[in-house]
């Protein structure tokens, strides 16, 4: 209890006991005496405040005029350079700021210096009196009694049933928020597939030029889209599933599990670029650690270990796209991804 209190805590009252009587309290001395302001006593001070308030309002007028200068003189129709736009934006902001602050500060200054500063006292009232409450209860009881709803359970129960059912059509009305016109099963199936298929060329994002295996140097990384993406019906939807990262590393450094031995071309591997956490594109590849990092939530995937999660919130490895080379030496997909890309969902399995 510190060394400031008198004696031990028990006898000082520093720690009060539960049976302490609350009556032993200091009486309320009432509101402290009002201290007059300078302007209350000195008419010259009051006059000075009056001039200050008028000056603030004048600043507001100047601010408004400045706004018009900014709007018509600094701004013009037709193309503006970015620098011009910045200057105009700043001028509009300053004009508005002065126009508003002049009024606001002026009024508050007026209220604080020249309007009465005597605090007044008002009594609180009960939110509603006991009698009003009793009357209200009586009225509600009478109303319920007159409907007879308690005496006629048949009416009551059918009404409850009707009211419970009536809103359900309104919920079903929202079924066609889904504009695809497909069944749930078809949509789940569609989520499992991307534009990748046997023989689809890997092309650069966004130029769309195909990539030769010989173009991919050790340690390099390519942002890849499937050939023909720009002609797809829902281009962005397809792109959101099909984007791929293409990297090359020494095959000796890679741990390759059974069944995936021929999914790479001399250490060139392709992985889905969509994070398995919540779907951000994984844009960062660190060459010397061969880690992939998602900039949104920092999930980190290890390229040497088939992009298994080594840090962060992602729950499973990035799906790998099996690739090979075609007769012309261009990289092509062997097939679609073998599992759904992107964030997990209930039906993913």
């Amino acid at each position: 209890m510190g060394d400031h209190s008198h004696g031990s805590p028990e006898e000082s009252g520093t720690v009060a006991k539960a049976d302490d009587v609350a009556q032993d309290r200091f009486p309320d001395p009432g509101l402290p005496p009002h201290r007059p302001r300078l302007a209350d006593r000195d008419p010259r001070a009051a006059k000075r405040h009056e001039r200050q308030v008028a000056l603030l309002f004048t600043i507001s007028i100047i601010g408004t005029l400045f706004f018009f200068v900014a709007y018509f003189v600094l701004g013009h129709l037709g193309e503006m350079t970015f620098a011009e736009l910045r200057v105009q934006n700043a001028a509009l902001g300053l004009g508005t700021a002065f126009a508003m602050l002049g009024i606001g500060v002026g009024i508050v200054h007026w209220a604080k210096t020249l309007m009465p500063d005597h605090e007044l006292v008002e009594q609180r009232h009960e939110i509603s009196s006991e009698k009003d409450r009793q009357d209200a209860v009586d009225i509600i009881d009478t109303v319920i009694e007159e409907t007879g709803i308690k005496r006629r359970p048949l009416i009551r129960n059918t009404l409850i049933g009707a009211i419970a059912l009536a809103p359900i059509p309104a919920i079903f009305m929202f079924r066609d928020l889904d504009r695809t016109g497909k069944t749930a099963h078809q949509m789940i199936e569609q989520m499992r597939h991307t534009l990748w298929d046997t023989g689809v060329r890997l092309t650069r994002d966004p130029s769309g030029t195909p990539i030769k295996a010989s173009d991919v140097q050790l340690g390099s990384a390519f942002h890849v889209i499937p050939e023909g993406l720009e002609n797809a019906e829902n281009m962005l939807n397809e792109k959101a599933k099909a984007v791929v990262l293409l990297m090359r590393m020494d095959p000796q450094e890679m741990n390759i599990s059974a069944g995936r031995e021929d999914w790479h071309v001399d250490g060139i591997v392709a992985y889905s670029k969509i994070c398995t956490h919540v779907g951000c594109p994984i844009a960062l590849y660190e060459q010397h650690t061969h880690h992939l990092l998602c900039p949104c939530h920092q999930s980190t995937f290890d390229l040497a270990n088939e992009c298994k999660v080594i840090f962060g919130p992602a729950g499973h490895a990035l799906p790998q796209l099996p690739i090979t080379v075609d007769a012309d030496g261009y990289l092509v997909a062997q097939s679609d991804f073998h599992e759904p890309v992107g964030p997990s969902y209930w039906e993913r399995g």
Binding site: N89, A90, A91, L92, G93, L94, T96, A97, F98, A99, M100, L101, G102, I103, G104, V105, I107, V108
Partner: peptide, 14 residues
């Protein structure tokens, strides 16, 4: 209100 407006306008301008 005018003070808040003024401050927001100041920030938005600059």
């Amino acid at each position: 209100f005018f003070i808040v407006f003024g401050i927001v306008a100041f920030i938005s301008g600059l």
